[in-house]
Design a protein around this nucleic acid. Structure first.
Lengths: 123, 123
DNA sequence: TCCATATTTCTACAATATTCGAAATAGATC
DNA sequence: GATCTATTTCGAATATTGTAGAAATATGGA
C-alpha cells in the first residue's frame, strides 16, 4: 500500500452511487448549492427553508439524506442547527469522478474542466 | 455574454440532478466504469451483460437511462449495438461539480483532486 | 423466405423515495 | 415550570424506480 490513492474497489462503487444519489434530486442539489454559496459558514435550517421554500419536514428529510452521505455537516447553535457543505466528501466524490474520467480512462481532458467558470487564457 | 461558462441557471439544476441520478445506482455506475475502462472503443451490449452478469432486459433499461442523459452513446454494428462513454456529458458534469466546489465556493482545493489516482510530488 | 442471434420493448410487480401535515423533542428565556 | 421558537420524527399517501420474464424487433446470412 503506497500513498497513492487506490482504484475504487468493487464494494466502494455502491457507496459512490449512494453519494451521487444524494445529489440526484433537484431539491437536494439546490440545498447543496446554497450551502456551497454560503461556505464556509453554512446556513441554519430555517434560512435554507426560507430561501428554497420547502416545508420544514421535507427539508429535514433531505438534509438527513445529505448528512448521511457526508455531503453536509451539522452543528448545533443553541436552538438552531447550522448546516454546512461537507467538503471532505465533496473532495472525495470529485476525486472519484476525476480519476475515472481523466486519470484512469483519459476520456476527459483535465484542461477542459479546470477553466469552467473562469476566463480562459489568463495567467 | 462572454466566452466564460455561465453559472448554472435555476432550470439547469434539474438537469444536472438527472445526470447524477443516471450514475446514482450501483449497476449503472458499474456499467459506466466498465465503458470508461474500454474507452474509446466501448463495448457491445452482450459484452457488458457477460461482464456484469445482468439480465439483458435489465441491462437494456439501464443503458437507455444512461443514454437519455448522454452519459453513454450507441452505435449500431451490424447485429450488435456498441456502447461507449459519453465524454461530452461527462466533461460537462465534471465541470459542473468542479465549478460548484472549487471555482464558485472554494470549498475544495483543486490541488487535492488532480492527483487522485496518481503518485503525488512527481514531475 | 426462413433461421439464428442480438437487443429492445412490453408488462407487471416489488421496493424505494418523495412529500408534507401533525405531533414530538430540544433549547432558550421568563 | 411555562412557554416560545426551531427543528425533527412520525405516519401515511403518492410517485418513481429497479428488476426481469416473455414477446417483439432488427440484422445478417443460408
Amino acid at each position: 500500500m503506497s500513498d497513492v490513492k487506490a482504484q475504487a474497489g468493487t464494494e466502494d462503487i455502491a457507496r459512490y452511487a449512494d453519494m451521487f444519489a444524494a445529489i440526484a434530486t433537484e431539491p437536494r442539489l439546490r440545498i447543496l448549492r446554497l450551502l456551497l454559496s454560503a461556505h464556509p459558514d453554512g446556513l441554519v435550517a430555517g434560512e435554507i427553508q426560507a430561501e428554497l421554500d420547502i416545508p420544514a419536514s421535507t427539508l429535514s428529510h433531505h438534509l438527513e439524506k445529505l448528512r448521511h452521505e457526508g455531503l453536509v455537516t451539522v452543528r448545533r447553535e443553541g436552538t438552531f442547527l447550522r448546516y454546512a457543505a461537507g467538503t471532505e466528501t465533496l473532495r472525495t466524490l470529485l476525486g472519484f469522478l476525476y480519476a475515472e474520467c481523466c486519470t484512469r480512462s483519459g476520456a476527459v481532458d483535465p484542461k477542459e474542466i479546470a477553466w469552467v467558470g473562469r476566463a480562459p487564457n489568463r495567467r
